[in-house]
Structures are given as structure tokens and as C-alpha cells.
């Protein structure tokens, strides 16, 4: 199913503009992630698509060629996975998963068959008869997904489905979810404020800030060609090289670097992996912290700009704390982005 949203906005009763007029298209079978910091309007956008929130007048929501803007939630045929899972505590795992099918008034035998199929797909066979309270967080998350998917919704919506889990489990389930969603072969929108999650699961990421989608593209596009200082720092945490730009030269506290183009009216950003410790480097700074991360070290350096910066070091001659070092930043790796007005 193709989702199409045109000039959809949401202003709450108290005047909060949670969502500015937004256009969004999600193609059949595509998994799109809405990524952004807390309070930027991700949940609001998702709830509007589900029909749990009414958009301001002027907004339109299309499922294929159906205008669903005025269709009530229960008739939109969307599956939703809630942040808190919202599983029915008075029903067993089986009954939870079968609920949507029961509402469709399918014959009992069909319901049983479909529930068994979904239980199998989500590896929940062993827990079918359990009470919801007797499940672990990860199992609940899978039941919530199974329940949403069982009635074969036209669109699957997930609001931070992994955020209630602890870090280690979140990482395993992240990959599991990516595999499952592709197995279901369904159009899905996935809300998260964790960029790794967005990148691992989504085909396309829409980055949101202050109630609008500021950039949308594949994870690679967002990483390599961010269109704003916000996207650069939010996706892949690029660091702002605050200094004096003079044509294609940038003068920093710790030395000078050349920019890939005339940087007038721009700000320069660089990612940690593009800052190299190199004794012939044009920049100088002092080693503040050294963190061993298995495959590499993360080195915190002060004195290059007024803020500390981070470099990735993978050699074996580890810099010492407090040592004066020289650095290079490759011209081509510098991101030049229009400075905020």
C-alpha cells in the first residue's frame, strides 16, 4: 500500500504546533523511519496516520487512492505497536493476537489458523497460552507486533517499539525486527529517536525537527550528504568546527584547514573517523581522554577548537593522556552546510 500525506499539520488545543504542514510519501513495501529528538512530533505524525489524532483542516491522508482523512481508526486497517505495547491484560497471548481477527468477524477456524501462523512467525509458540503478565519484555514486544500484524493491516505503525527494553536486548531485537518486517512484506513506519535503530531497520529515514521533516533519504544519503547542520549533528554526530572561515580556508584555534569549496556563509562539520592523528598534521591539540573500544580507540582532544573533539584511532601506538599531538582533517571529508539564519 502507498501512503500519501499532503500538507498535514497538527495544532493542539493549547496552541502547541506539534506538526507543521508536512508531506510524506511511503511506497508499497517500504519501511520508513521517523527519526528525531524528543518532542519533535514523531508520535503526533504517527497518530495522525493511524487516525488517533485529527489533523488540522487542509491536511489529507491517502491510502493508495482512498482518502482516509475522515475515516475512524477502527476502519483504517492499520496495525499499531505502542511504546508501552498496550497488550490486553485480561486476555492470553493467543486471545491478544486473535483480537483483531475476531473484530473482523472471521470464522473461528480461520482465526485459529492465522493466529498459529503468526505465533510461528514470531517464535511465540511456547507462550501461546500464557498470561501477558507472565512474559518478559522482549516477549511482550513480539506479542505486540504479532497482534498488530495478524489482521493483515494495510499499514504497520510502530512507535518506539524497542525503547522499553534494556540496551543489550534492544540490539538483538533490532535486527530481529528488521528481519521480521521484511518477512511480513508490509509497508511500515517506524518511530525512533535512536539513529542506529533507524539505520538498521529502515529503507528510508525521515529526520524530523521541531514539527517538520527536515530531510528524508537512505541512511547513506543522510550520512554523506546532510542538508542541514541539524541533520549532520543528529545523524552520525558530526562535530561543528567553529572557527573563522575565509574563502576556502578555515582558521581554528589549533591551526588551519582547507575547505573543499568556498565556505562563505557556511559552517564546517567533520566526523570523528575523518580526524586523523598524524605527526605531520596541520592542527595541534592535547589528548584528554583515551577510550579502548575493542576494534579502535576513541580519543578526546582539546585545543583544536574551543570544545573538545573526538578522533577515531586504530593504530597501535596509542597517544598518552596530556600528550601534545598533531592532526589532519582531510579536505574532502569536511561537510559545508549553510549556517542557520
Amino acid at each position: 500500500m502507498t501512503l500519501n500525506l499532503t500538507t498535514t499539520a497538527k495544532t493542539f488545543g493549547d496552541g502547541t504546533k506539534a506538526l507543521l504542514p508536512t508531506n510524506l510519501k511511503v511506497n508499497t513495501g517500504e519501511i520508513v523511519s521517523l527519526l528525531g529528538p524528543s518532542g519533535c512530533g514523531k508520535t503526533t505524525l504517527l497518530r495522525i496516520i493511524a487516525g488517533l489524532e485529527t489533523p488540522d483542516p487542509g491536511g489529507k491522508i491517502w491510502f493508495d487512492s482512498d482518502d482516509v482523512t475522515d475515516l475512524p481508526v477502527e476502519r483504517r486497517q492499520v496495525g499499531m505497536v505502542f511504546q508501552s505495547y498496550a497488550l490486553f491484560p485480561n486476555m492470553s497471548v493467543r486471545a491478544n493476537i486473535g483480537y483483531g481477527l475476531k473484530m473482523k468477524k472471521l470464522p473461528k477456524a480461520d482465526i485459529e489458523a492465522r493466529v498459529s501462523e503468526v505465533l510461528e512467525m514470531c517464535q511465540l509458540n511456547d507462550y501461546a497460552q500464557r498470561a501477558i503478565t507472565a512474559l518478559s519484555g522482549g516477549q511482550r514486544q513480539r506479542v505486540a507486533l504479532a497482534r498488530a500484524i495478524a489482521p493483515r493491516p494495510r499499514l504497520l505503525l510502530l512507535d518506539e517499539p524497542l525503547s522499553a527494553l534494556d540496551a543489550a536486548l534492544r540490539e538483538t531485537l533490532r535486527d530481529e525486527l528488521a528481519i521480521l518486517l521484511r518477512k511480513f512484506n508490509i509497508t511500515a513506519i517506524f518511530v525512533t529517536h535512536d539513529q542506529n535503530e533507524a539505520m538498521a531497520i529502515a529503507d528510508r529515514v525521515a529526520v524530523m525537527s521541531h514539527g517538520e521533516i527536515v530531510q528524508s533519504g537512505t541512511p547513506e544519503e543522510l550520512y554523506r550528504k546532510p542538508n542541514s547542520t541539524f541533520v549532520a549533528s543528529f545523524v552520525g554526530s558530526a562535530m561543528h568546527l567553529a572557527g573563522e572561515i575565509n574563502g576556502s580556508k578555515l582558521k581554528l584555534k589549533g591551526g588551519e584547514v582547507s575547505l573543499p569549496a568556498d565556505g562563505t556563509g557556511c559552517e564546517a562539520f567533520v566526523r570523528a573517523e575523518n580526524i586523523q592523528i598524524n605527526k605531520n598534521g596541520s592542527l595541534s591539540g592535547y589528548v584528554d581522554t583515551v577510550t579502548f573500544l575493542g576494534t579502535h580507540y576513541r580519543v578526546g582532544i582539546s585545543g583544536v577548537i574551543s570544545e573538545p573533539i573526538t578522533s577515531i584511532f586504530s593504530g597501535n601506538k596509542v597517544p598518552k593522556l596530556g600528550e601534545k599531538i598533531r592532526l589532519t582533517i582531510e579536505t574532502q571529508s569536511i561537510l559545508l552546510l549553510p549556517s542557520k539564519a
Binding site: 477502527e74 476502519r75 496495525g79 505502542f82 473482523k104
Partner: peptide, 14 residues
């Protein structure tokens, strides 16, 4: 929990 009611509605409950 209002989310429970919303969940039921997304699943087709009037």
C-alpha cells in the same frame, strides 16, 4: 491506560 483503548480501536473494535 488510554493506550489499551487505542490499541483495541486500531484492531477494529468500535
Amino acid at each position: 491506560d488510554p493506550a489499551l483503548e487505542e490499541a483495541a480501536r486500531t484492531l477494529g473494535a468500535n
